[in-house]
Design a protein around this nucleic acid. Structure first.
Length: 402
DNA sequence: CGATTTTGACCTGCGC
DNA sequence: GCGCAGGTCAAAATCG
């Protein structure tokens, strides 16, 4: 039973969000970012803080992966996720077990022997434990540029899919727990599915922040929703709509259980009209004033990415390109960079979006959302904060990338 | 020389 | 209990 919510697309693209329970892979194609209860690393904060902390591009090779802010040529997407559990394997690699260290994610059994208390927590966490955010986009490039640096640590053939699945770890920071899986859709190999898991424990470049914000918001939403759904308290569709009134097909939330997943499907053609229609609902007005922007921004970002990555976005994104949100001041000339920034800014800066999301969910759920909220909220909050900063600043422009 | 990618093996979780 | 599949590790190879 996965509940699916679909939000349709706004102007440019459609997002598919789905939450699934159980193994993500099977049910979902890929989920992406997960949000964890814990609060620690929200990407937001970190990201926010500094604007740029870009990684020093140190990595050379990763460039490819690294969407690098500076260049933004590629696609940018940044997810964030909290990771949580650690697998057992003994990996203790790097550092501190707890914090940031990258942790393996398989959700092991929660209880590994922990105390009862922990169990309790575990339970809670477990629930949300593996929220993931997946982004589906058409791209010929092997990977979407999301503003972060990634290191490939494995590749495996997934069952049912002739295309191998690649596993990447964020290398922008030593202990960053964020991981992502990249795989092409078996049905349509032009579609690249990127699943993010975990939350960055370090500042992110604007470009990355955008993605992170988006994903985190989605994840937050997802988690909240998923729990509710699980409880039967809420209707996923409702949630989806609420969240992204404008898009009916853009986002799919599947809350199945252990690993709720939010899938942003950018592979579909944007439908402005639809968007317009959807947008409006007065009910959602407040919170979602921005949604439209978000989608747009996102779409653009992807679009850009596509261009750079060689992916062909569905058609007319360009045509639709909408000016960046008001939040973001754009420069007179919408260059790619600008566009990108705008997109980034829009997303990132859209506190309203995330906040709205959170608020909406909360209200909808009647507070149920709260539970996770810590995480979610935090994330959201963080995001928001970040966004705020960013957005206000509109400074995103300052972002080197431009 | 250092960092990253590749690839096979290993471990864990889940279903039968 | 067994087998399957997913995910991760780590050694070797490759690249800048």
């Amino acid at each position: 039973m996965n509940t699916l919510v679909r939000i349709s697309g706004a102007s440019t693209y459609h997002i598919h969000v789905q939450i699934a329970e159980g193994r993500p892979e099977e049910k979902i194609q890929e989920a992406v970012g997960s949000v964890v209860p814990r609060q620690f690393m929200e990407l937001g904060p970190s990201a926010t803080t500094e604007t740029d902390d870009q990684p020093s591009n140190t990595t050379s090779s990763e460039e490819r992966t690294h969407s690098g802010s500076p260049h933004n040529h590629k696609n940018e997407m940044v997810p964030f996720v909290h990771h949580q559990d650690n697998k057992a394997k003994g990996i203790g690699r790097e550092e501190s077990p707890e914090s940031e260290g990258w942790v393996p994610n398989k959700a092991p059994k929660l209880s590994n022997g922990s105390s009862k208390t922990s169990i309790d927590q575990a339970t809670t966490e477990a629930t949300m434990r593996k929220a993931r955010v997946s982004v589906r986009a058409r791209s010929e490039a092997p990977m979407i540029t999301d503003g972060c640096q990634w290191r490939k640590y494995g590749q495996k053939m997934a069952k049912g899919n002739p295309c191998p699945r690649a596993y990447y770890r964020c290398t922008m920071a030593v202990g960053c727990p964020v991981r992502k899986q990249v795989q092409r859709c078996a049905e349509d190999r032009t579609i690249l599915i990127t699943t993010y898991e975990g939350t960055h424990n370090h500042p992110l470049p604007p470009a990355a922040m955008a993605m992170a914000s988006t994903t985190s918001a989605a994840a937050s939403m997802l988690l909240s929703g998923s729990m509710s759904s699980a409880d039967g308290l809420m209707n996923p569709n409702f949630l989806a709509r609420t969240i992204l009134p404008c898009s009916s097909s853009m986002a799919t939330i599947s809350a199945s259980a252990p690993f709720p997943t939010v899938t942003l499907d950018l592979t579909q053609n944007p439908n402005p009209l639809q968007f317009q229609r959807s947008v409006a609902p007065s009910q959602f007005q407040n919170p979602f004033q921005t949604p439209p922007q978000v989608p747009h921004a996102f779409a653009q970002t992807l679009y850009n990415q596509s261009k750079f990555s060689g992916l062909h976005v569905s058609q007319h994104l360009e045509a639709h390109q909408v000016p960046p949100p008001q939040l973001h001041h754009q420069q007179p000339q919408p260059s790619f960079a600008d566009t990108l920034s705008a997109a980034t800014a829009a997303i990132t800066a859209d506190p309203s979006f995330t906040a709205a999301l959170a608020a909406a969910i909360s209200s909808i759920m009647g507070g149920n959302a709260q539970p996770n909220s810590n995480n979610a909220t935090n994330n959201t909050a963080s995001t928001t904060t970040t966004n705020t900063t960013t957005s206000n600043g509109n400074k995103i422009g300052g972002f080197p990338g431009n």
